[in-house]
Design a binder for these strands. Structure first.
Length: 107
DNA sequence: AGTCGCCACGAAG
DNA sequence: CTTCGTGGCGACT
């Protein structure tokens, strides 16, 4: 595996997300000094530290579930929702119910 | 090295 | 929903 410095920043920031909380792609991007959340998503989809990096705790700033395992819908997304639900983070209609769960929202 | 297309996003119309 | 903007990466030339 080849991990760029940029990716390591992303994984480091994501790994800082505590259980039962979530962060946004934008939040991660800003935290690591990136102006494009898309780059964060690209790094996450690569995520070579899958169990190490809780990529399922990263959602869109729109409170949308976002993506998982390179998918934006399907079984992968349902899996992401299930993982978050197991941590107390509930979703409804593909949207985060309690926005207070967000870290970059003053958590 | 230069160019183009691809992304798990976000903001504006 | 559609369109534009943004930063990073892969592939082609």
């Amino acid at each position: 595996m080849v991990v760029t410095e940029f990716q390591k920043r992303v994984y480091a920031a994501v790994s800082r997300i505590p259980k039962g909380r979530v962060a946004t792609y934008k939040g991660i991007a800003v935290r690591i000094g990136c102006g494009s959340p898309r780059a964060v998503g690209q790094a996450l989809k690569k995520n070579p530290f899958a169990p190490d990096v809780p990529c399922h705790r990263v959602i869109a700033s729109d409170l949308a579930i976002g993506g998982f395992q390179g998918r934006q819908e399907g079984a992968a997304i349902r899996r992401k929702v299930a993982l978050l639900a197991a941590e107390g983070v509930r979703f409804s209609g593909g949207r985060l119910v309690e926005s207070g769960r967000l870290i970059d929202k003053g958590g």
